[in-house]
Design a binder for these strands. Structure first.
Lengths: 150, 150
DNA sequence: TGCGTACGAATGCAATTGCATATATGCCGT
DNA sequence: ACGGCATATATGCAATTGCATTCGTACGCA
């Protein structure tokens, strides 16, 4: 299970690992500079906000963010403490939590987006042509889709 | 600084963030299953091992791995405690540490590689054609190179 | 020589994460 | 109704990370 590793795959992997760490660091840095919370807060708020009625089960957040179960649990604790989301036990299945984004949560998400978007544009988008961006989106999207099934 | 964010860039970014977390999780999972230490240990050992004479300054490790200064410091603490590297004060400039990989360190790196490579092949390489892998390597490589300067 | 500044490394403390396990609820077969 | 299994969430504790600061060394310059 080891012989078939092509050099191009290794190179792509190495570049992926490296660029990801660099870029996430820079984005986090800009959020901090703007006195905003970490990126994961945005991702969770975004996942809930874009769901029908601004509600999403906790497992839904796990699926969309790829965060570990216990991390979602504790991150939601923090969001709840800040009044950004509400956590309700599901009426239909008492095992589920339904998370509801609050007005304050929406406001924070909206406040974070320009900073986040600016960081993406400056550190990532600025170095890609339109065609390259589409190519990259397509290649990575293909990988994302394969991950769902294997 | 915000208007010019093309949809393709946002999509590429979202896919990058998502796939990266998924893939790193899977690789870490396989290392754990094989009773091996975390990926960062590999990256640090690899950086040192591939340097001339198996020596590298601590800042060199930072540059190559993109880990934070204090995290490198403490990760090296752990590696040193396990006898995988030695930490020497540089003769020429007493501020620098020179890290030297030990035989045990090399052995661990070699033991980790098949597992790591297998995980890369299975979760990443298997879903890309040769051409796609080259494309991806090229696009990401371009980003890596731009990061050095801005 | 001595002071100010810069750089590389280390560290105290708080926050977050990972791991293993616990709790709570629902579902199924008898 | 009941026991056994599965699913969703939570949590105690140890390890790691982030942040701010400190320490030690080198360098430039009066």
């Amino acid at each position: 299970m080891n012989a078939k590793l092509k050099p191009a795959v290794v190179e792509a992997w190495a570049n992926l690992v490296r660029i990801e760490r660099t870029l996430l660091d820079r984005v986090e840095e800009e959020l901090k500079r703007a006195q905003l919370p970490p990126l994961d807060w945005y991702h969770v708020l975004h996942a809930i906000d874009r769901s029908p009625k601004g509600m999403l089960r906790q497992t839904g957040v796990q699926d969309r963010t790829q965060l570990a179960q216990y991390n979602v649990c504790r991150l939601v604790d923090r969001l709840e403490r800040e009044g950004l989301v509400e956590r309700h036990q599901c009426q239909l299945d008492g095992r589920n939590n339904v998370l509801v984004i609050t007005a304050k949560g929406r406001a924070l998400r909206r406040a974070m987006w320009p900073v986040y978007a600016g960081a993406i544009a400056a550190h990532f988008g600025a170095h890609l042509s339109e065609v390259e961006a589409r190519h990259l989106a397509r290649l990575l999207g293909k990988l994302v889709r394969t991950q769902a099934t294997d």
